[in-house]
Design a protein around this nucleic acid. Structure first.
Lengths: 248, 248
DNA sequence: GTTCGCGCTTGACCTAGGTCAAAGATATCC
DNA sequence: GGATATCTTTGACCTAGGTCAAGCGCGAAC
């Protein structure tokens, strides 16, 4: 059951996102205790594949630290990232046997997992967990559809700006300050990963980032540390109508 | 409550997809009776908007006949279809107030609706309905992600072939015969709608359809009646790895 | 320190698909 | 039956982004 990549449960479960966000917002203490019992942690290194498309998946869980991605690949090697899993995002499909896409650790990754069967049993027993899960799935669906607009209709520049604004929005250190004015964050993706997510080549990603820098939309320190002097400007560059993406 | 576009309940509810597919596969008779009471039908003409993005949505339901689409539009008019709703597909988000995209009748459309509040109540009471809904949402999510690969990485020709194979697969008259050899079906979308779904222009759609015809992958009679002499060939043209799209 | 390797940038060039424009097909309405 | 409108096809041309190739940091290994 417990694989060798299983690691000790961290000091206190407060860093377990399941408790805050993903599933348990309204769990009773005894329900939490129950979850506690079927819970374990797994660690992956950047580049490692968590599960291959088509494989049986015997757990569900959520990202604690690092980034995972859902990836689809065609025979000829073209690949498209179809989901970006940031800390607190949920992985797995209760009631389903496997995935249809690869789950890959894009950075070093720690996941909090629950063995699937007991988790499903618990779900049956506690309707609000099932309810929460439906909500989360609807959120993911909204995010996926939002991304379809990005992939289908936005220019390369708009795509980059869209990605930057999503990452900025999700950056834990920023969420409290509100999304206005100057923002600073780390970009946790390689140019290639960005390209795979945006349906571009890495050369185009690089060129567009340079262009955004040249035009003062962003500032770069090294390759990864980003400063956005004016978030509203970035949103404009993303071509974001309405509040698009605020759902994520 | 009942709008003027509400129409009489058809002869027998067997044509109501809710009963067969969407929600009620395992409903008890009294539960069905309950659903029956909160059910009504609505009719829309091609081009009519069912709900605007951001609007309050006071019902859920499913498509009985015709095609609806979920559409996102940017301020400058670029639009991307993010979902194609064929007969028996479910519309609406239990537990949510509205949509973030327009729902548009792409052809003349009949929908079977349930007022949302009573439907949600029923959902609370009958866990297997909630469970079914989660499954459906996961299916939609898979379909959306599948489509992200199409939008992000496929060529125009592959996109067209992908769309054709989805429509063929979903065509009610064909599902029984198995998806091999010669298929004949009607294409219920204008070139423009296809373009919006595929992230192309209508000119490119037209050109690629002509090309597929020229190359013998499809035959056309009029603009809409399609014959696929060899479905496997079409799948190949779609660049479909594995069983991609079989989920839909 | 030097070397290796990987991620990134930049340039030169090319092509798939977009844009603009004209005209053929159907269907609908008097 | 002709007029009008909508949908579609096709052509000529253009450009955003892909492809190929060279080189630049910069950290890790020795």
């Amino acid at each position: 059951m417990l694989k060798d990549d299983t690691i000790a449960v961290p000091q206190k479960c407060d860093d377990c996102p399941i408790r805050h966000r993903a599933v348990c917002a309204r769990c009773e203490p005894e329900e939490l205790a129950q979850l506690e019992q079927i819970k374990y942690y797994r660690k992956f290194e950047a580049g490692q594949t968590v599960i291959w498309a088509g494989d049986r998946m015997d757990f569900v869980g959520s990202v604690v630290t690092g980034i995972a991605s859902l990836t689809q690949t065609m025979e000829d090697g073209r690949t498209q990232m179809v989901g970006l899993l940031l800390p607190s995002d949920f992985v797995g499909r209760p009631g389903r046997d496997g995935t249809v896409y690869d789950v890959v650790a894009t950075t070093d990754l720690v996941m909090c997992c629950f063995r699937k069967k007991p988790f499903e049993n618990m779900m049956e027993a506690t309707p609000h967990v099932a309810h929460r899960l439906l909500e989360m799935t609807l959120d993911e669906l909204d995010a996926a559809r939002e991304w379809m607009l990005v992939l289908g209709r936005k220019t390369a520049r708009e795509k980059i700006a869209s990605l930057l604004s999503i990452v900025a929005r999700r950056d834990a250190t920023l969420r409290k300050t509100g999304m206005v004015g100057r923002l600073v964050f780390d970009l946790p993706l390689t140019r290639e990963a960005m390209a795979d997510y945006l349906g571009l080549t890495l050369e185009t990603v690089s060129r567009q980032i340079s262009a955004l820098k040249r035009d003062g939309v962003i500032e770069l320190e090294g390759k990864r540390h980003v400063t956005v002097p004016d978030f509203a400007r970035l949103m404009e560059e993303a071509g974001d109508d309405s509040d698009g993406g605020m759902l994520v």
